[in-house]
Design a protein around this nucleic acid. Structure first.
Lengths: 121, 121
DNA sequence: TCGATATCTGAGCACCTGCTCAGATATCCA
DNA sequence: TGGATATCTGAGCAGGTGCTCAGATATCGA
């Protein structure tokens, strides 16, 4: 405890955001913080896709994909439309694809500094 | 199971990445997927800061901050230098600040669509 | 209507995460 | 050296996450 009890918090040192802002931002990152969801988002960046099509390409059960898609939907990253028996999902926000690409470049740069190999990019 | 057993995986449908690539990308997002770490990264985007200074501004114990900083360090998002008793941390990659800003804009756009208020931005 | 296919959903479980707590380590200064 | 301050670290715990499993729901075609 103790934790330097004085000095409550942010004064005028910049544009400190509210707790709700940081929570929402963290939640956005959390949506992409899982390999399966990252794969889903990357596939959807090429265009909309059905649940089974995603499951096939990801070698994951349709159930698991459906669970993850629900999460992405609740977080506002994807939208879906129904066409007969099929449910087509697509990215709902251009920022999502940008985020993915930016993270991909960060990883590329990071690995390029010689800490690991990068033959997979 | 079953999972549409046929059709192994990615054919030529685009630039599908390797498992290691998706894991690394997801790990990058995971680094920012926590409100405390998001706050830390945002504060560091204004310049380097000591552990206690971060702890004061975040109203979190120095111990918790130190744990999170170690994680961010291991993930290659921050670097640090020691000056006497103090350890100053700073962002180690321009992509990190860009990622944060992009997520902030996504959240802003998302909330602007009327699903929630956004008086905190 | 019936069977086949596609998707969704809740329960349960193994694993992971972030925090606190207690103590270790490191640096400065008297 | 000894005390004060700053930071680090491992153990442990409460809560969260992603998957599987079983079953429900929905749509199409015969």
């Amino acid at each position: 405890m103790a934790a330097v009890a004085g000095q409550v918090t942010n004064k005028g040192e910049g544009a400190v955001l509210s707790d709700r802002a940081y929570n929402a931002i963290a939640e956005t990152f959390r949506a992409l913080a899982d390999p399966t969801r990252a794969r889903i988002v990357h596939l959807l960046s090429f265009g909309e896709s059905s649940v089974n099509h995603l499951a096939e390409n990801l070698t994951v059960t349709p159930s698991a994909v459906s669970h993850q898609l629900r999460m992405l939907r609740q977080m506002g990253l994807v939208r879906f439309r129904r066409e007969g028996q099929l449910a087509f999902y697509a990215l709902d926000d251009p920022h999502v694809a940008i985020l993915f690409q930016e993270a991909r470049e960060h990883v590329s740069d990071y690995l390029q500094e010689g800490r690991k190999s990068r033959e997979w990019l």
